[in-house]
């Protein structure tokens, strides 16, 4: 049921993803603001299948040279490729940002196989990689499946500065015009076999909602 309805290939499922900022209000209290968030879902067969996007429409938004999105997609498996459109919530003005604030990313994946995974996250500007983080995670058996957890991974300086600058733009259309050329590519690989387990292309706009960050997920196909 997960496949074609959630971010899941035949080998790995993304359970959760969030990028956040946390500020200590007093010694016992923290406030957390989610910039983007994919929460745990329990899809059923009555839920609609994911819409498809032709991957050629977004090639130039991601690295195109050796090891780029095109080459990765051709290597497959093609059921591991997804596009996530985020409407990011930048409205954290109620929280006092300062040297004590923490910017982090948390994510969780699950599989039925015990693997060691590497998670590469590339931040791209005008389709060119500017920074990459590579993390290795080991499986933990939980409730009959293997779970991989990246908990509170610190955001890099580039991203923190980017968010600061974005938040200070006076109009939403200006933020969206900057975000048009800002993308993130996350590739999860089986460390031992080098098989692609998941490849998620993230694109962004600023949220207009009062309910926080929103998103849409698409399958990437070549028609």
């Amino acid at each position: 049921v997960w496949q074609d309805r959630t971010i899941a290939s035949s080998k790995l499922r993304m359970l959760e993803f969030s990028a956040f900022m946390e500020v200590q209000r007093d010694p016992d209290n923290y406030s957390k603001h989610l910039f983007v968030h994919i929460g745990q879902t329990n899809p059923s067969y009555s839920d609609p299948l994911l819409e498809a996007v032709d991957i050629r429409q977004i090639y130039d938004k991601f690295p195109e040279k050796k090891g780029g999105l095109k080459e990765l997609y051709e290597k497959g498996p093609q059921n591991a490729f997804f596009l996530v459109k985020f409407w990011a919530d930048l409205n954290s003005s109620g929280m006092l940002d300062g040297p004590g604030s923490f910017y982090g990313v948390s994510s969780q994946y699950s599989s039925i196989e015990n693997m060691t995974i590497t998670v590469s996250t590339k931040v791209c500007s005008f389709g060119k990689q500017v920074v990459e983080k590579v993390e290795t995670e080991y499986a933990r058996m939980e409730g009959g499946k293997y779970v991989y957890r990246i908990h509170r991974s610190p955001m890099c300086e580039y991203m923190i500065n980017f968010i600061h600058k974005l938040k200070h733009l006076p109009e939403k259309y200006m933020m969206n015009s900057v975000l048009e050329n800002f993308t993130i590519l996350q590739v999860v690989t089986n460390r031992d076999t080098q098989e692609t387990l998941l490849c998620i292309a993230f694109v962004f706009e600023v949220s207009n909602s009062e309910h926080g960050a929103q998103y849409h997920v698409y399958r990437l196909v070549k028609e």
Binding site: E51, A52, V53, D54, R56, Q57, I58, Y59, D60, K85, W87, G127, E180, V203, E205, S207, N208, S209, H211, G212, Q214, Y215, H216, Y218
Partner: peptide, 24 residues
């Protein structure tokens, strides 16, 4: 062909790509 420099709005993307979901 190359789609470089083409604004996202002019690409072939589903209508939902431009519709922010209303629910949290």
């Amino acid at each position: 062909g190359s789609v470089e420099q083409v604004p996202m709005r002019k690409r072939q993307l589903p209508a939902s790509f431009w519709e922010e979901p209303r629910l949290s």
